[in-house]
Design a protein around this nucleic acid. Structure first.
Ligand code: SF4
Ligand code: SF4
Lengths: 163, 163
DNA sequence: TCGATTTCGGAGTCTTTTATCTTATTTGGC
DNA sequence: GCCAAATAAGATAAAAGACTCCGAAATCGA
């Protein structure tokens, strides 16, 4: 598994939060319900993202979470690093006990470039791009739900580019 | 983690077995000792490789395991597929519940090419290459041991290409 | 044949990850 | 002040992965 379940949930949740970036706080319960993410598990993940200054939280009625940074400034790499650390970008494929640059294992020279390419791709992909793709219904955030179902009254606040 | 511990052990063990491809059987206990792989765990891994026709086994005194195929015909991809299945090459990075080609998730188009490149690299890398690199001491199979320590009397049976 | 050696195969244990439950603490509105 | 709504935090449980144990079966040599 490339990412831990935590990172996967974090990315999905942040897309959902960014979809509703009207400045209001989104309740964690709503994210949990709409995306089918275990509630208490999700709260702990969002607490980490809060400490990393990616989101801010507010307790009490009409509380919840919202982005602290511009979605154009949040890379997927950054989200993964916040939750999983640099495991995905530093771990090798063979994991020899004493590996490192000084003692490369058989696959090092073949694998390192691919790992770097993966990291570059993720650092160049901003949260805003994923949000746009979901908003335009080019891709789906969950298996059965479309973006209109998340915000029934809203329905494409941006100008529809087609049809 | 890219590979399971099982696959990592399998690759390391196969390199070790191929290093000693004199036609004799290598006892699993020896592999376990030299490479610091838990013995009973390794036993089960090798049983799978045996069923996959990659190695053959022999019980009793002077028994053990040996390659059934030419190391030039065994790809790293094949080893991984035997142990882990195609998880590494089919799983997505976001793992949406109902994902697939028909309903791509936001990262699909960005991630799929990298995953394919990884698979291509692993299918093009044959066990024999890793064996050669270890034999030439370009890389190490374990943290502290060199190839001479594995087979003290042997010491470069192939003609030394350098020095 | 007998005993030692080695793989085979099933069941069980330990550890990490994932998920749940329960109890605080904060916030806003009346 | 009081209640309801929401996050914070710690303890607990379930699931998966990694590893161990034990008895059985095969093989070889004396
Ligand atoms: S030497 Fe390279 S490929 Fe080998 S374990 Fe270390 S980082 Fe991974
Ligand atoms: S759509 Fe593609 S990237 Fe998304 S979960 Fe499926 S395979 Fe992975």
């Amino acid at each position: 598994m490339y990412l831990t379940q935590k990172s996967i949930y974090a990315i999905q949740a942040l897309i959902f939060i960014a979809l509703n970036n009207s400045g209001e706080f989104v309740p964690i319960r709503e994210i949990s319900n709409k995306l089918n993410i275990p509630f208490h598990f999700l709260t702990k993940i969002l607490q980490v993202l809060s400490k990393q200054q990616i989101i801010e939280t507010c307790r009490g009625p009409s509380g919840g979470v919202r982005l602290r940074q511009d979605p154009n400034q949040i890379s997927i790499e950054q989200i993964i690093l916040s939750i999983d650390g640099d495991r995905l970008f530093s771990e090798c494929i063979l994991k020899l006990p004493d590996c490192g640059n000084s003692k490369p294992c058989p696959l090092h020279d073949l694998f390192a470039p691919i790992r770097e390419e993966l990291q570059k791709m993720l650092s160049n992909t901003m949260l805003a791009l994923l949000v746009k793709m979901v908003r335009d219904n080019q891709v789906k955030l969950t298996s059965v739900t479309q973006v209109q179902d998340f915000f029934p009254g809203q329905k494409q606040t941006k100008k529809p580019d087609h049809s």
